[in-house]
Design a protein around this nucleic acid. Sequence first.
DNA 1: ATCCCGAGGG
DNA 2: CCCTCTGGAT
Length: 215
Amino acid sequence: MAASREEKNHARRVVRHLAKHYADAECALNYDSPFQLLIATILSAQCTDERVNIVTADLFAQYPTAHDLAQATQKQVEKIVKSAGFYRAKAKNIRNCAKQLVEKYDGEIPLELEALTALPGVGRKTGNVLLGTAFGIPSGVVVDTHVGRISRRLGIAFEKDPVKVERELMAVLPKKEWIYYSHRMIHHGRAICDARKPLCEDCSMKRFCPRIGVK
DNA sequence: ATCCCGAGGG
DNA sequence: CCCTCTGGAT
């Protein structure tokens, strides 16, 4: 479905305000390589970035590369990532991820979204984060809970399913804004547009936010 | 009780 | 479409 001129104008107005108020917003995850960003992003599911950074400080000190992590046992990894939640599944996924990277790509990160999402624990959100943030390739729009929630509150997206929200955003946002949009939305979500108690009075976009009564 | 930069399976 | 995985913070 094609986005109307009005929808695009509304979206661009939001983009301009985000650019002004969150000019230097960037990824809050700590990492020293694309591989580490991949692992940190997998660990970030249903977990704060702050908590992920605590976990990865230990994890990357012991297993800095795919080759290192591929050698670790399930128990060793579980112990380190436990506080990030979903720890059995996450430990299994990042270990298998490291193994597959070593086997298929000699420890390097493939640059195609399909190759990334074929890795265990890597979905569209993680794949888009990696290509966009580590390599500057806008393969799609990163849609996490913040991006979805705020895009809906602002009337830029309407669907609930993150994949559908991504399609809505791709239709209405200029491609070169895709990467920045998500980082800025995430910062806005933490600073102002909180899930539970949004600080609407302090929000720079309240004039054109149709939120009142919108989930 | 609800949410945090989700993904995979049924 | 739904459910489950899991701990920590508020």
